[in-house]
Design a protein around this nucleic acid. Structure first.
Lengths: 341, 341
DNA sequence: TGTTATGATGTTAGCGCTAACATAATGTTA
DNA sequence: TAACATTATGTTAGCGCTAACATCATAACA
C-alpha cells in the first residue's frame, strides 16, 4: 500500500474522529460556529484543544480557492514613512482572517515586478502596492488580477483599481510657497534617492519658485544616494560651497532636513535667521529638535487604514465610496522657518 | 456532474497538455530543470510563458508538506532597530524559494502567542522570533515545532533552538562604565517602553554604577510610554527638575538620547561639559548630530544575516557551527561624552 | 394530518500539486 | 551479449481541506 507522510500534525479528521462527527462539521464549527449546534460545537472545541489542532492554511486555501492573503509591496523597510503605513495595515488586519504578505522592492522596478508575480501566485485576496510608477508588465499583471488592488502613498489620474495618498507635487509646491512667503530669496532644494515621488515633490517646488520669481536651477542639489541625516549635512555643505548666498532649503524628507540643521549648526549658521529649513513628512523628531523644524505633515497611518477599508468594502462587494482618496497634507510651521523679517 | 470553480488561472495540467507531456514532468522542469531533457524543458518553458502560468503555492505546499514560509515575529514595525534586522532577513531570502511571513506582536506577549499559533498553522520552514521572553505556552509551541527556530536580538542561556544577538546587560554596563570613566558623577538613566531588553540594559547600567560607587536609584527615570525624541527631551527635563545636579545620562535608546540633547540645548545646558549623553544602538543620525552623540553600536543587519544563515544550514541538515551567536556591540565614543576634565 | 420550509449534519469529489512507485530507454560492465 | 545500473518520463494516489449536493430531523403551516 502506498503511503505518504503528511505533516505529522493533527488534521481535521483527527478532530472529527475524536469529537464523533464528520470532518465537514468540524470545518463549519471552526469557520462559522453558528452553523453548528451548541452540543457538537462544545465537543469539537474540546477535541481541538486536546489535540492542539491548528488548521492547515494551505489545504484550506486550496480547497476554497481563497487564500486570505493580502500582498503588500513597499520599496523600503527602514524608511519610517512606509513603516507607519505598514503598521496601520498590520493593525487593521490584525484580528481578521487575513494574513499580510510583505515584499520589499528596494526601489527597483524589476524587483517589484518579480514580487507581484510571486504574490499573485498565492492567489491573494487583495494587493497593496506603493506608488504609481509600476512597469508596463506589472501594471498589466495587476490590472488582470482577480482581486482588489490599492496603490498607496500617492494619487494620480489613472489608478490600476483604487488609490489612497496625496499629491507630492502639491506638497512640494506648498513647501516652496511657504519659503517664498517667509521672505527667503535664494531658496535651494536638497534631494536624496530621487525616486518618482521625490521627483514630483521637486517639480512642485520648482513650480512654486517659478511663480514666485525665485527659480534658479543652480540651487537644486540632488543625489541618487539613499537619504540619511549625515547626507543632509553634506548636501547643504556642498550647496553652500557652490552658492554661499543660499538662505533657505526645502529638503526632500525629514532626515535631510535634520542633517541640514546639524550642518548649519556646525558651520555656525543661524537657523532660521540665516537659513530657513523645511522638511517633508513631519516625523516625530521634527517638533522636538532645537530649533524645531518646519515640515509638511503627512498622515501615513491614515493611508494604511484607508487602504484596508477600501479593500474590505471591495471584498464585501460593496462599491467603495470612492476609487481615489486624497488624505492631503498640512504645513506644520515651526522655528526653522520663523525668522523675524 | 459535480463541478467546482477552481481559481480560474492556468494549472500545471494546462501547461502539461500544451507541452504534450505529463504534469509531473512540468513539475520537475519547474523545480529542478536538470531532471528534464533540454528538448522537453524548452517545450514546457514555452507553454509556461504562453499561458502566463504561475504555480499555485498552496497546492504545492499541501502536496509536498513543505510551505517554504519563514515566520518572523517582531514587537515593532516602526522601531529602526527591528527594521534593520528585517531588511537583512528579506535581503537574505530574496532570491530563494522562501517567503517571509511577518508578524507584529506590538510588545504584547499574548499577541505573540497568537501569531506563533497562526504561523505554525502554515507549517513554516523556520521561525524567527525577537527576544527571549516568550510566554510558557509560546515556548512550548516553538519547542515542539518541527522546524528550526531562531531567537534574535539578544542572547541567553536557554535557547528554544538557536539564538543570535548580544547581551543587553553588558551593553548597558559598558555605557555606565564609560560615563564613570569620563569622570561624570551623578549619572542618570532614561528609559522608555521598558520592555525586557530595556530592563536588562538598565540592570547592566546599575551594575556599572554600583561597582563605580555611583549608584543612586533616585537618578533612574523610566516610563512605559513608547520611546520618542520628544519623550527624551521631556524625561531629561523631569530628571533635572528632580536632581538639578545631574551631570550625565545613559539613554535606553538613541531617540531618547537625541531628545535629551535637544532638551539640554533648549535649557542652555552645555553638552558634554555640563551634561554627558550616551545612547544605545548607534542609529545613523548619532554621528551626524551637533554635537555628535556617543552610543553603543549594535549590528542589527548582521543579526538578521546570521539568523538566516543558521536557518539555512539547519534546513540543509548540517549541524550549525554554533547554536548561539554573540554579535557583540561596540562603544562609539563621540562629542557628547568627550568633555575636558 | 400531511405538506412544506428550515436547520443540522453527512457524503462525495475535487482544489492543484508532488511523493512514491512503475516503466521504458539508454549506457556500462564483464 | 547478458546482466545490471542509470536516466528520463509516466501513472496513481494522496496532501488536508471545503464546495456542492444529499439526507434526515424538526418546526411551521394549512
Amino acid at each position: 500500500m502506498r503511503k505518504r507522510k503528511g505533516a505529522g500534525r493533527p488534521t481535521i479528521s483527527d478532530v472529527a474522529e475524536k469529537a464523533g462527527v464528520s470532518t465537514i462539521t468540524v470545518s463549519r464549527a471552526l469557520r462559522d460556529p453558528s452553523k453548528v449546534s451548541d452540543h457538537l460545537r462544545r465537543k469539537i472545541d474540546n477535541a481541538v484543544k486536546k489535540l492542539n489542532y491548528v488548521p492547515h492554511s494551505h489545504a484550506s486555501a486550496l480547497a476554497s480557492t481563497r487564500s486570505n492573503i493580502i500582498g503588500v509591496i513597499v520599496p523600503s523597510l527602514t524608511n519610517n514613512v512606509f513603516a507607519d503605513t505598514l503598521r496601520a495595515i498590520y493593525d487593521a488586519f490584525d484580528q481578521g482572517v487575513y494574513q499580510v504578505q510583505l515584499g520589499n522592492s528596494r526601489y527597483v522596478a524589476k524587483e517589484e515586478e518579480r514580487l507581484v508575480r510571486t504574490f499573485l501566485g498565492q492567489g491573494p485576496s487583495a494587493m497593496i502596492i506603493a506608488g504609481t510608477d509600476q512597469t508596463e508588465i506589472t501594471r498589466e499583471l495587476l490590472e488582470s488580477a482577480p482581486c482588489p488592488v490599492v496603490q498607496i502613498m500617492e494619487i494620480g489620474d489613472d489608478p490600476i483599481d483604487m488609490m489612497v495618498g496625496f499629491s507630492h507635487f502639491e506638497g512640494g509646491r506648498a513647501a516652496g510657497i511657504h519659503l517664498v512667503q517667509k521672505g527667503y530669496k535664494r531658496i535651494g532644494f536638497l534631494g536624496a534617492r530621487m525616486d518618482p515621488r521625490s521627483h514630483r515633490r521637486m517639480e512642485g517646488f520648482k513650480e512654486a519658485m517659478r511663480s514666485g520669481g525665485r527659480y534658479d536651477p543652480d540651487l537644486i542639489m540632488t543625489t541618487t544616494t539613499s537619504s540619511s541625516v549625515t547626507l543632509g549635512a553634506e548636501l547643504i555643505g556642498q550647496l553652500r560651497a557652490r552658492r554661499p548666498d543660499l538662505d533657505a532649503v526645502f529638503c526632500n524628507n525629514d532626515d535631510l532636513a535634520l542633517g541640514a540643521l546639524f550642518g548649519c549648526q556646525k558651520a555656525g549658521i543661524s537657523v532660521p535667521d540665516d537659513m530657513g529649513i523645511i522638511g517633508f513628512n513631519d516625523l516625530e523628531m521634527m517638533a522636538a529638535s532645537y530649533p524645531s523644524l518646519t515640515s509638511i505633515r503627512t498622515d501615513r497611518y491614515a493611508i494604511g487604514k484607508h487602504a484596508v477599508a477600501m479593500i474590505q468594502s471591495a471584498l464585501d462587494s460593496e462599491m467603495p465610496d470612492q476609487k481615489i482618496i486624497d488624505v492631503g497634507f498640512e504645513l506644520q510651521q515651526r522655528e526653522s522657518t520663523s525668522r523675524k523679517r
